[in-house]
Amino acid sequence: MSTEVRELSYSQAIQEAMAIALEADERVVLMGEDIGVYGGAFQVTGDLIERFGPERVMDTPISELGGAGVAVGAAVTGLRPIFEFQFSDFATLAMEQIVNQAAKMRYMLGGAVSVPVVMRFPAGSGTGAAAQHSQSLEAWLGHVPGLKVIQPATPHDAKGMLLAAVADPDPVMIFEHKLLYKMKGPVPEGHYTVPIGKAAIRRSGTDLTIVATSIMVHKALEAAETLAAEGIDVEVVDLRSIRPMDSATIIASVIKTHRLLCVYEGVKTLGIGAEISAMIAESEAFDRLDAPIVRLGGAETPIPYNPELEKAAVPQVPGIVAAARDLVRGVR
């Protein structure tokens, strides 16, 4: 049976995944603020409420902590909730239920329960929403054993990884970059999953490995085109999964190219790039490095409102090109 592949936007792909999940399993329930008739702050849920009704597509009051806790309790007792946070920044309100309850209940109860909850977080900057609506907090949650944390970067993966998350018996936190919602890409029809815990090589190369997450994957690919014209051949790895992280793919890539550049939007210090760098320094790839490991991450500031400042606060294509060039030419 051939599966048709069509162009969908990232948000359409997510909606399609949720529709498939709702259809297939009566235990699946969507929860979030304004996800019903309003269609979701980023129009991701769209008209799902018309298709599945208010009992399956539940508007919650503005109660992130309580709402996340209800989702946890429901997951422990037999439902498969997909809880949408309106902005990833609001994860801070729910940290108690995410970190102390969802992540730990299975362990604290010695395996007596599982917590199959999915939480979705629109994240990242570039919309002028400023400091409290633009953060990238995946490293915070990636730091917590018991959670799984993913960042699909393409419409194809957004659908497949969400379906994998719904099927996962453990809590899965999905960070979706807001600027990706309108990006289009090929998405197969029907049900399929993209495995959690596997990175993807988006561009094969020999001179430098760029490991990037989310929207930075696309910036890295753009930079790679510029660099190719200069004779610099870059390999771009889409990390996709923060916890568990696919170290094997990164290690193999760095062994091949001898150079590593990490590009991510979260604040640079104590972020994902720091983990990747340390992991490589401890690995087989260490003595294949022919250049220092460089990280391009978010600035050590809250995200500013002014659009130029906002852009300057996170890595951009010219910065990626310059860093890559310096590394490969051996001047850094």
Partner: peptide, 9 residues
Amino acid sequence: VRATPLARR
């Protein structure tokens, strides 16, 4: 001597 790990290897 300053040398990269790969150079040393």
